[in-house]
């Protein structure tokens, strides 16, 4: 889980659309008309095991303060409904500008469902590219340390350093996701998705809140994440 700024997400999304439109216009359109009758679509169409490569790549190429790995299983029902289970681990080690250190790691899980937004074409050869939209329910049980919090009295004098180690927390949140997935070769798939995360309940002010939550990212009332996935269809 890698955390771009909102502005970049928008920029990226607009660029993506332009690229899509431009590439498409540059090609000749020779569509075959869809056959009138479609064959019955089966309920069970296998499942796709996916791995997110965005976070490890980003962690490897730049010294970001957080890291993570995640995998998911996406079941294909009627080529339209995709129940999803995601599992992963993540953590962070961050030093603030005032020398406060935050450290965490933990496992997170998410369950949810994706819906195919494209109408299935009825060509003889089925192409398994899809545009999906869905929701997730995520939770993480993790422990964290917040150390080297300093308190000083400029007027009366005196100072103290506070350490909070082994704080534990359980957080739940929901996500709204839009993604694209394409079949690149036989059973291999590539895809990306953008997800917007929200907490069900805000933290009470004054509590020692974690700066980063595995599976959620930087703590805030909402945040945006991105996955780039490689998948294999069984």
């Amino acid at each position: 889980m890698f955390q771009p700024s909102m502005q970049n997400i928008y920029r990226y999304f607009i660029i993506s659309l332009f690229v899509a439109v431009a590439v498409n216009f540059s090609t000749a359109q020779n569509k075959t008309p869809a056959s009138a009758k479609s064959p019955e679509v089966k309920w069970w169409n296998g499942f796709l095991v996916k791995m997110d490569v965005a976070s490890p790549v980003i962690t490897g190429f730049s010294d970001t303060e957080h890291f993570g790995m995640e995998w998911s299983v996406q079941f294909n029902l009627k080529r339209k409904i995709f129940p999803v289970y995601e599992i992963g681990f993540g953590g962070a080690d961050k030093l603030s500008s005032n020398e406060v250190r935050f450290n965490t790691n933990g496992i997170f899980q998410r369950i949810g469902i994706d819906f195919g937004l494209l109408k299935q074409s009825n060509d003889k050869e089925l192409i398994n590219n899809m545009l999906t939209g869905g929701v997730r329910l995520g939770w993480s049980n993790f422990s964290y340390d917040l150390t080297n919090l300093s308190l000083s009295d400029d007027y009366w004098g005196g100072s103290q350093t506070l350490n909070f180690e082994g704080q534990s927390a359980t957080k739940t949140w929901y996500e709204i996701i839009v993604g694209i997935q394409v079949q690149v070769y036989k059973n291999f798939y590539l895809g990306w998705n953008i997800r917007n995360r929200h907490f069900f309940k805000e933290d009470t002010s004054g509590n020692i809140t974690p700066w980063y939550i595995p599976g959620y990212g930087k703590t805030g009332s909402s945040n945006t994440g991105f996955n780039y996935t490689i998948g294999y269809h069984f």
Partner: peptide, 22 residues
């Protein structure tokens, strides 16, 4: 939608380009 459904190789290229831009 048409693009994703009909242009197999180009959509692969597209997904790479968008990822790199991102």
């Amino acid at each position: 939608k048409n693009f994703l459904q009909n242009n197999f190789t180009k959509s692969t290229v597209f997904i790479w380009i968008t990822a790199v831009l991102f």
